[in-house]
């Protein structure tokens, strides 16, 4: 019972956090007269614009890209991408514009520069060292022949051996 309560409490805690003061664009009341937003149904993103929108994080719906989101701000960002492509800007320049306004946060996939490099390097390093460690361990285990002559179970310290004997004895 208490565990159920704990889990419920933690779930509440996690969901309550984003409900703080600021109001995202999506929670707005329907306007009585047309708002100043671009008509999003008018244009469909073409390949290149979609490619860029897919790399950008939607500011009000963390976890979704600007391409996937139907929020007003994401629709406007798509329009910005289209306009800038139309003016001849490259993908790099457009991404740079959004990073300049929102920071690196706006890029969904961390860029491989600076501290971000750790994200790309650490897994390989962990894999190489972990793999090497495993190989040496397994070699060691397979080379050590079980030594039962002196009545001690192989590979265990005296303490552990003692504990194991007691455990078996009890079982």
């Amino acid at each position: 019972m208490s565990r159920v309560r704990l889990v419920c409490g933690m779930a509440l805690l996690l969901t309550a956090a984003p409900l703080a003061a600021q109001e995202p664009l999506d929670n707005r009341m329907p306007a009585e007269d047309p708002s100043l937003l671009t008509d999003s149904t008018a244009a469909v993103l073409d390949g290149e614009a979609a490619e860029i929108a897919g790399q950008l994080r939607c500011p009000v719906c963390t976890g979704q890209s600007v391409l996937e989101s139907n929020s007003g701000i994401a629709q406007e960002m798509q329009a910005v991408i289209r306009e800038r492509l139309g003016e001849g800007e490259t993908e790099e320049e457009i991404l740079e514009y959004f990073v300049g306004a929102y920071g690196d946060w706006i890029i969904l996939k961390p860029r491989a520069i600076g501290l971000n490099l750790l994200v790309y390097i650490l897994p390989s390093v962990a894999l190489i060292f972990g793999g090497a460690w495993l190989v040496t361990r397994i070699r060691k285990w397979s080379h050590d022949s079980p030594d039962t002559d002196d009545g001690q179970v192989s590979g265990l310290s005296e303490d552990d051996d003692q504990w194991l004997r007691e455990a078996i004895g009890r079982g």
């Binding site: 600021q22 664009l25 100043l36 937003l37 701000i73 406007e76 960002m77 329009a79 910005v80 929102y102």
Partner: peptide, 19 residues
């Protein structure tokens, strides 16, 4: 001032209001 298409807000990296 009014900000058609929230372009100025996006220039400023606005997430929501108020900022």
């Amino acid at each position: 001032v009014v900000d058609p298409g929230i372009r100025t807000a996006i220039d400023h990296g606005v997430h929501g209001v108020p900022e």
